[in-house]
Each structure stands twice: as C-alpha cells, then as structure tokens.
Design a protein around this nucleic acid. Sequence first.
DNA 1: CTGTTAGCGCATTCAA
DNA 2: TTGAATGCGCTAACAG
Lengths: 344, 344
Amino acid sequence: MAEERTSGRARIEDVAEAAGVSMKTVSRVLNQEPNVREETRRKVEAAVAKLQYRPNPSARSLAGQRSYVVALIYDNPSSNYLMEVQGGVLDACRASHYNLVLGPVSYDHPDCIAHITDLIEHTRSDGLVLTPPLTDDVKLLGHLDEMGVPFASISPRTHRGRIGVTLDEHGAVFEMVSHLISLGHTRIGHIKGHPDHGASEWRHAGYREALKHAGIAYDTRLVIKGEFSYDSGVRGGDRLLDLEDPPTAIFAANDDTAAGVIRAASKRGLVVPDDLSVCGFDDTPISRQIYPQITTVRQPTREMGRVATLELLKAIRDPNAGEMVRMGYALQLRESTSSRRKTR
Amino acid sequence: MAEERTSGRARIEDVAEAAGVSMKTVSRVLNQEPNVREETRRKVEAAVAKLQYRPNPSARSLAGQRSYVVALIYDNPSSNYLMEVQGGVLDACRASHYNLVLGPVSYDHPDCIAHITDLIEHTRSDGLVLTPPLTDDVKLLGHLDEMGVPFASISPRTHRGRIGVTLDEHGAVFEMVSHLISLGHTRIGHIKGHPDHGASEWRHAGYREALKHAGIAYDTRLVIKGEFSYDSGVRGGDRLLDLEDPPTAIFAANDDTAAGVIRAASKRGLVVPDDLSVCGFDDTPISRQIYPQITTVRQPTREMGRVATLELLKAIRDPNAGEMVRMGYALQLRESTSSRRKTR
DNA sequence: CTGTTAGCGCATTCAA
DNA sequence: TTGAATGCGCTAACAG
C-alpha cells in the first residue's frame, strides 16, 4: 500500500516510487555509485527534485556504519587563526557532505587525551583534524594510531608518514630575518614562541640560520623566551630594550608578540620603525590594525584547513590514501620595519 | 540467543542484558525518565559503566525523530566575537548532549534566507541561534516562524515575544559618553556602526541621549557613518579631525573602529589621549593590544552564547518556554581617554 | 544494470 | 514500575 504521507518529508521510498524504481537504485544515484543507466539516473534526479528530497543524515549514518563527522581539535590558539582554519575545514566538509564537530581542548590538562578520546567516542567521528600544538604531541598521535582513528595535521613539521598540510616555517623565517639583515640590521633580537609548540623551535631555527648565513654571531642575550602572547611581547621587548647594547630590530615569533614589542617600544618613547624595526608572523588582523602596521609572514590558513580536511577525507575512504601537502607563504612588508638608522 | 559480540561497541541491548532488565528500562535511565526504581537504576548505571556504553547518536536521532542539533547562524562578525559566542553555545550544547553545526552565511547575499533554509533541511536542526545582524532581519525571522523552527537571538534589541539574550546597549553607551562628558569633553564625535546592524542605531541613540542629558547640542557634523571596521575608523577619524573645530573625544561604535581612529590620530601626530580621547565598544582583544589601550564596554559574550542556547533548548522542549534574558555590561576604563586639556 | 531482504541502535507505542 | 513489539530511513549484501 503506497501510502501518500502528506505529513513529513519525502523518504527514499517515496522517491523510488515516484521514479518507478527501487530504493536501492535511488540510493545508487544519490551516492554516485556506478551501474545506473543514464536514463534511470535522470528519472531519479527528477523525482528527487520534485519531492525536494533530502537524505536523512541519521538514517544514513546508522545504516552506513559511519558518522559522516570529522572533528576539529584545537587548544584555543588565536581566534583569528582558528576561525580561518575552521572556515577551511567547513568548506571541505560541506563539499563532501560531512559534518564538523568542534573539539576545544586544554593541551595542559592532564586528561587531555582522555577528553579527546571521549569526544571521538561520543560523536563517533570518522576522523580528526589536528591543529598545533596538538600536532606535536607524540603521545596523542600514538594513542590515535592505536584507536585507529584517521587524522590530518596542520603542522609546521612534517612527521614521517603523516597526512595533512605543512608550511616551511624555517624557510619563511629565514627570508624574513634575511630581509632585516638586508636593511642593515646586525643586532637582531628574537622573542620565541610557546615552548609547547613545535613552531617555536622551527622559527627560532630559521632565525639562527639566517644570522649564520649572513655571518652574524648568534647572541643568546638577544633571544628571549615567549609564549605567542601580547604580554610576552611586552615583557620580551622590555628586556631586549633594557640591554646595554639593544637590538635595532626584533623578530617576534608571531604578530601578537610583535604588537607587544611595539607597545614596549612606544612606552619608552622609541619610534617604530625609526628606532626599532619589528616583525611578526601569521599576518593576523592585528598586524594591520595597529600603528605602525606590522611586517609579517602570511600563511594561507583557510586553505590549509581545507586541504588538510580533504586529505583526511581521502584517508577515511582509503587508509592508505592521503599525504602531507606543503603550502606556500609570503612576506608582507609593511610599516614596522625599515633600514637601520646610521646614527644611534 | 544472547550473542556476545566481541567486536564493536556495546549496544543498549547489551546493557539491558548485563543489568538483567529490558531495553526500555535502560532507555528510561539514560534519558532520566521517571518510573524507575532506585535499585534498578543503579544496576543499569553499573552495567553502563562496565560496558563503557555510549548511546549511538544516529540511532537516537533516527528513532527519536529529532537531530539533537542546533545551528549557529552568523555572518562573519569579528573572529573574537564569534569564537566567544561559539564557545558559549558549545558549552550549553555539550551539557545537554546536543551537537552544534556552524552556519556561516552572507547577509548581503540575495539567497541568504534560502541558504539558511537549506542548512536547516540538510542538518535537520532542531533549532537555531542567531547573531547580529541576522537578528534584525524581520523577513528572516518571519520565514523561520513559518517553518516552525525555534530560534534564539543574541541581540541588542528586544523583539516582543522572542527568546534569547539582550544587552542594554543604549544604557551602556549612555554611561560611556556620560563618562567622556564628566572628563570635561563637550565636543564629542561619533562614528557609527554598520547600517544593517540594529546595534548601530542603539549605540547612536545612547550617544545622543547622553549629550541631551548633559545639555550638549547634537551636531550632525560630528556624527560619521561607519561599518564596524578598522578602515571605517580611519576614514571617520580623518574626517572628524579635519573639521575646523574638531572634537576632543570620539566615541567609536566598536573597538575596531576605535583602533582606526587612533591610527588616524597618530598619523597626524596627535597623541591619544592627550590630544584626543577615544573609546570603543565590545572589549575585544585589540582594545588591549594596541597603544594606548582602549577604553571600552565589556559584554559577557561567551555567557551570552551559553544563555541564548539554554533558552533555545528550553523552547525546543516546550514551544511556550524560553525567554529574553537581559545581560549585564561593564565599562572598561583604560588609556585612550583622559580629561580634556585646558589649552588647545 | 536492477531489485529484495535484512538489519543498523535506539525510542516509542501499548500492554502487563 | 516494567517489558515486548514495531519502525525511524537508510545502506549492504546478495540475488536476479
């Protein structure tokens, strides 16, 4: 009895009836499976359109034994960074009819791994996208391997056999610091990033390499600990500018830190870039919303989220698929850097 | 035949067997339904713990005829604002075992409403949380009413019969501008927010009201159009400072705009706050990461997301439940404002 | 190339 | 206070 259900939405059965085929054939068309005659396909598509049919995600998941969910795991990096990544992940998910669930975690928390496990269990996520610094946590990665959950990393570091995206931060910093050197600076300070982030070491290494390449001695007094925060930029800037022989340029590990350095300089009446050149990393909005605008490195954050997710989806389909994709960067030269002043 | 399934997760049936009760009883315990003896409840809970049972969300949705999904609809406001709201919404969702799906939309786009409708259909969302300026779109709200989708607004405006959260922006701005007046300022400029946002009018009204209350004439030349952006702050600041008789203080509609004003001032060598007081609204990170730090109004954004979602969930359970909750604000007096200089 | 059958794991009747 | 039966809408395995 083909009951016309006036109430509720169309089901796959209704579509099948309207198209004069079986449920399975409709299913084939919807899932782009092969073995459907072109004419049949068109009939089905017409019925789908006519009935405004939308597959029920729950039913699809239940029967299909997968959730069509990927989780984005992050530990509150900057809002801007995260929104961009999230946007990219979302783009990729939508294009593939996957859903995104958000997994904010505290990297510091002793039960961090348990929280992630819980999230996976609860949501039945088919895979994960990891952001720094979680991408650097060997213990977490091992745990995920054991669980058999596919994941993609957005990482400055290329771990062997992992999938996701990387950026050559070492190279980017090398260029950035080399640029400072080309402006005549020789005493160049560096405020490092958060010690838990692999990026901090990579950026520091790029800095060191650029100095070496230019034949400038590495001076430990010019390298200050930081944590990717505005406050650590202020503190680090204070310490560097208090030195007897202060630097004429400072490479801060990210834009927030650079903004802090600019504040430290402004406080003591120094003019950036006339008295001090400052540069950052990430090209977050603050780098343009501050006076002077900050010279920095742009990375295609949104695209990185998108591509990482695409690689993840490949790996979900086929555990052997997916790779680590290297993304490009670009120096953004703005107002906070200039040639070293002759007199000082 | 109670088959022990070594593979896969525990199902509700396994729990029932382990506890020596029926599936339905387990279901009752899980959903906190009444009519379960305390002893039975404990037995079930023990079995749940022992088997590490987790309900399958898809099965639950399918059988229960609802998605346990709420959608957060937004048109890229600032990242910081959105991350906060999103965090609050997420908190509320998790506490109630709901899932969040993200619904970024373009308010400008002619098919905006269709896109939202599509999202709802696809995700089968049980309800929506709306952020400005979508909260001010009468056409959208009407459409949602027609569809019968419950929604909560995070809105500066209290629409009759709507649910969600509001903030008394009018009062907040009144206090803010009154504070400027108490510092001795009488020529106070205002750069408005985006015309599509109801907030812009409310903030403007608060400004006007404060002037009136202090007996200061409203001067249209001191009120400039803006759009909540840094750039509009720079442009607006330029225009105001180019006046023959420029203001000694500027109330910018939000922090980004205020940052732009500070840049405009800095460009022409004016010192904030000595030569010009500037204040903003929202207390976003930029207000603290800029020199000088911006005097602004703080609103409990994250809490607003949480409370709005809680009201939505009430309304999902019972269409007559849920209300419009008024949230508090607080002036953040910082470095960008000071007493009007006597000489000028 | 297409259809039939049997669940996926849960909530929801209704009866006991 | 509890339980047995039925089906949510779809995909998977197998037949044709």
